[in-house]
């Protein structure tokens, strides 16, 4: 289980999340819907250990998180992967797509070129794209690389925050199928955050809706 208990996050004086509790189960896809600005992305960042809440606790498979971002212990950090809405803000512009996909495994000392190549193919990246840098590919092509990167360390939990908003209908269906195939073979828990209720109804086992705080 990936669990958030009584989480509060404030931006300035405004509370984005107010003593919110949420559980992500392994093996299932949970949808998270609600209007713009309701705190969905904030929760996604807390659950992926990217944002330290003002109060409350997060536990990953029973272990309480005490450090956030780079200070989270590696084995907790690599248990949760985040794919986020804007791929251009999520990658190092100096790296090639192949390097972006391989980056987490290399950093963990588990470089595995075959797996990186297989993930690239699975997400629909053709060979010609892998030697290019982010400014030489389209936004959607870069997002495919971000999905491949997120799966590279076989996370136990995958947080997809508006993963498909910059993708055409066919690529959206394709990447959702890639994530679902991964979930089925690994037993990972998936959180699908989206504004699109129709998409969540096709993708998630159950959907939680937030309202504006």
């Amino acid at each position: 289980m990936l669990e958030a208990r009584e989480i509060t996050v404030r931006y300035g004086r405004q509370a984005a999340l107010d003593r919110l509790s949420f559980t992500l189960e392994p093996g299932r896809t949970t949808g998270l819907g609600g209007p713009s600005g309701c705190g969905k992305s904030t929760l996604a960042r807390v659950l992926s250990l990217m944002l330290r809440p003002a109060s409350g606790t997060v536990t990953v498979d029973g272990r309480t998180v005490r450090g956030w971002r780079q200070r989270a212990p590696r084995e907790l950090r690599t248990r949760v992967a985040l794919v986020y809405q804007q791929p251009r803000l999520a990658v190092d512009p100096r790296l090639t797509l192949a390097e972006i996909i391989a980056e987490p495994s290399a950093a963990a000392g588990r470089a595995d070129p075959d797996r990186a190549a297989a993930l690239a193919a699975e997400t629909g990246l053709t060979r010609d794209l892998l030697t290019r840098r982010p400014h030489e590919v389209s936004d959607g092509q870069l997002q495919r690389a971000c999905v491949a990167r997120a799966l590279s360390l076989e996370p136990r939990y995958l947080i997809c925050d508006e993963m498909t908003t910059m993708l055409d209908a066919s690529t959206q269906a394709h990447l959702v199928a890639v994530v679902e195939a991964y979930r089925e073979r690994s037993g990972a828990g998936v959180l699908a955050v989206s504004h699109d209720d129709v998409l969540l109804s096709r993708w998630a086992h159950r959907t939680v809706r937030f309202d504006r705080p």
Binding site: G124, R127, S170, A173, A177
Partner: peptide, 19 residues
């Protein structure tokens, strides 16, 4: 493309994008 919409069949077009 039209059939891949989530409010329709939600199936991707098979195969890889063109190089």
């Amino acid at each position: 493309l039209a059939a891949a919409r989530p409010d329709r069949a939600f199936v991707p077009i098979p195969g890889m994008p063109p190089e």
